[in-house]
């Protein structure tokens, strides 16, 4: 009998080893952010991204994560940990994304996710920042001779499920007295394939994903993107409520990328600017004056590291959505002084 007990105890030990206790780290510091402390202690940022959506987050030919959302993960890791590569990417389907963030498995969620009223109020999550302004657009076959969404009465459109899109279409149809049929797919590649085969007349998603979808078609020139944008889809980062300092870090990391573009600081001229600049704005941004990094609970070199590792917002946008990539005009994502919405709160 005692042998059985011993075996049982052995099993328990093995199990508890498997479980691994990640203790609560609540070290005392001037800025109390449990997430920041946990990330620093772990030496790694856990970042929830899309399982694979061209432009936002995908694995490139060498198996490395890449994309606009991934760039924000890398920037936060560079700011917090000093190394953009210290990120653990967790690929998430739209079904599980919020719960995984709620359970504390990831530190931030940046997964082409729309920031909405209900999500803000109901999920116990904070919407840290918007890194991509877009809206629901449609792509249809050219040979249908359709110029506007209103003409799509009776058409079948491929959609990815678990998003805000299904409801947007239903609402649009109700408002405009058209009936647009939807076909709900679990994953983008399956929806692309169905659109390609002609199962649906078109594909709908946020502007960035539609551009990605178009380039994924066998003959991209056979498809036309309709001019209407039927909804607002501000895509951005989510963090857990109750940890405002961490939310600030994510927010200001994105702002740092935008500010760098506004100041004409890019990955290539960064070191030169830092050595030579006399402009107070640039000096403040690069941490040569003021204590902005410390106010976030980081060091003053944080913004330098962000630009050094991923570049400014314009560079990042061009890399994934520019003419050489998916070819999506910047539109709303231009800087505020170029007629867009990417605006930085005053760096004071």
């Amino acid at each position: 009998m005692s042998g059985v007990i011993l075996k049982f105890l052995g099993c328990c030990t093995v199990l508890s080893c498997l479980v691994g206790f990640a203790g609560e780290a609540r070290a005392q510091s001037t800025i109390k952010s449990p997430t920041l402390e946990a990330v620093k202690q772990r030496g790694q940022l856990n970042c929830g991204v899309d399982t694979g959506m061209p432009g936002y987050a995908f694995q490139n030919s060498s198996g490395q994560w890449d994309g606009l959302d991934v760039a924000l993960c890398r920037a936060v890791a560079a700011a917090v940990l000093g190394d953009p590569d210290k990120v653990k990417y967790v690929g998430l389907t739209s079904k599980v994304r919020f719960t995984v963030l709620q359970s504390g498995e990831i530190d931030m969620l940046i997964r082409d996710t729309t920031l909405t009223f209900t999500r803000n109020t109901q999920l116990g999550l904070n919407e840290a920042v918007i890194n991509f302004y877009t809206g629901e657009t449609f792509m249809v076959r050219k040979n249908l001779n359709v110029a506007h969404v209103k003409e799509l009465d009776g058409a079948t459109i491929c959609v990815i499920t678990g998003t805000t899109l299904e409801r947007d279409i239903a609402d649009y149809g109700r408002a405009n007295h058209v009936k647009i049929n939807t076909l709900l797919f679990d994953r983008p590649e399956e929806a692309f394939a169905a659109a390609n085969a002609g199962r649906c007349d078109g594909y709908t998603d946020d502007g960035g994903s539609v551009a990605a979808a178009r380039s994924g078609m066998q003959h991209p020139d056979d498809w036309v993107i309709l001019p209407e944008v039927i909804s607002r889809e501000p895509l951005g980062a989510f963090v857990r409520q109750g940890d405002e300092p961490w939310s600030n870090i994510v927010k200001w990391t994105h702002y740092a990328m935008v500010e760098a573009e506004a100041l004409d600081i890019s990955q290539s001229n960064l070191d030169e600017v830092k050595k030579t600049t006399t402009e107070p704005e640039a000096r403040k941004f690069l941490g040569l004056e003021g204590d902005f990094g410390k106010m976030l609970g980081l060091d003053n070199d944080w913004s330098y590291r962000i630009v050094k590792s991923v570049g400014n917002y314009g560079e990042v946008y061009d890399r994934y959505f520019g003419p050489k990539a998916l070819g999506l005009p910047r539109g709303l994502n231009e800087l505020w002084n170029h007629g867009g919405l990417q605006y930085v709160l005053a760096w004071q």
Binding site: G55, F58, N60, G91
Partner: peptide
Amino acid sequence: VTIVGLFDMLGAVNQAINDPAWLG
């Protein structure tokens, strides 16, 4: 297991299909 965010063989294939350099 792709549903729990693990990229097994089929998940890796799905990933590769979505690589902008190899779409389609």
